[in-house]
Write a protein that binds this DNA or RNA. Structure first.
Lengths: 193, 193
DNA sequence: CGGGAAAGTTGAACTAGTTCAAAAAAGACA
DNA sequence: TGTCTTTTTTGAACTAGTTCAACTTTCCCG
């Protein structure tokens, strides 16, 4: 149950068996079936989660009611509304399972206890947040610099596993284009091969 | 020299006078005159900086040679290429002073010493990175959801001080539109008042 | 296995934003 | 103060991406 989580953490810091036991103790396994909502706009995000199995999306409903995907999370990725979770304020985001999923979750009070009792956790989440932030900066730059077809090619090159699992509608909502236009981009690209 | 920095830090964690002395010791004051480059694409970013005075921009040169602004930093803001600095790898970004500026800088080895000798610093930068990340998520969402005129209005509402200090070219490069189009947006908006 | 719903495709008309070029306005500084 | 440079404005022609509607394909589940 914790093997994927331990692997993920070892990428950033080393924990002894005892330390990892202490770290993982407050996490509980949450099952979510396809289409189940784990967070709705307006609620306070009660968890930070590590995806053990499945696929989820974090999305935003814009003024016209269109869904825009902030990010996806599959096995080995963390998922939360960082703003709502860290400040315990109302969320503007929604989180939904796109497949039957299993998520290791920790609540806000337990996470704070972890920070106090196991100071290495402080470094762990600092480093993880830095990396996530650098990745989002690269996406922001790409979104400022590239047209939709380049962003699409970038996406499927970077996340080939995701391309298989996601519908084109979901990818379009991530790329910030209409699904009709993504369909046209794909047609154009396939003609070139 | 350190008053602004101390104020900024107190927003996140409390440090005693001794602790703050220990914290601030490795920072040095760097002067930069208008148009001076502090980081060029390809270099390793040698500093993390706190802006005491002035205004700078972090930008990216896209394939067509256009400059896209990732962010601006004025008094009270931090500035670095987080990816290049934390991994000590070649940067894809450029940092330039838009006005004569003063930046309190710390180098990579000294920052690591701080993390070890003053564990609170770990929490400080974790919390700061989380907030910066949440802010970038909001910008990403806005960029996915809104047209240029809304993003412009959002920008000048959120950063009225910046609007005064930046040229329209710089704002356009931040919004991801051509400066000609920003000029047209401004004309349209001013007609509506 | 069949039928209904959801996802993907296509075309036509439209809109947001770009590009280029030229002129006007605003700064910079000797 | 004048002049040179940079920034901003404007218009015209263009391109990327949207919207809507109709159709086809895929998939889900009773």
């Amino acid at each position: 149950m914790y093997t994927l989580l331990r692997e993920n953490i070892e990428k950033h810091i080393h924990l002894t068996d005892e330390e990892f036991a202490q770290f993982s103790a407050p996490f509980y396994l949450q099952h979510a079936e396809k289409k189940q909502m784990l967070l709705r706009e307006g609620e306070v995000c009660k968890f930070e989660g590590f995806v053990n199995k499945g696929c989820l999306r974090v999305y935003y409903l814009d003024e016209s009611g269109f869904e825009k995907v902030l990010y996806f999370a599959v096995e080995g990725w963390w998922i939360t509304d960082i703003d709502s979770f860290t400040n315990q304020t109302a969320s503007i985001l929604n989180i939904e399972a796109l497949e039957d999923s299993e998520i290791l979750m920790i609540t806000y009070p337990y996470k704070n206890i972890l920070y106090e009792t196991l100071p290495k956790v402080e470094k762990l989440f600092r480093v993880m947040t830095q990396k996530t932030h650098a990745a989002l900066q690269r996406r922001m730059i790409s979104s400022l610099s590239n047209t939709a077809d380049k962003r699409y090619l970038e996406f499927i090159t970077k996340y080939p596993q995701l391309e298989q699992r996601l519908s084109q509608q979901q990818m379009a909502a991530y790329l910030g284009i209409s699904h009709e236009f993504l369909s046209k981009i794909r047609k154009k690209i396939s003609r070139l091969r």
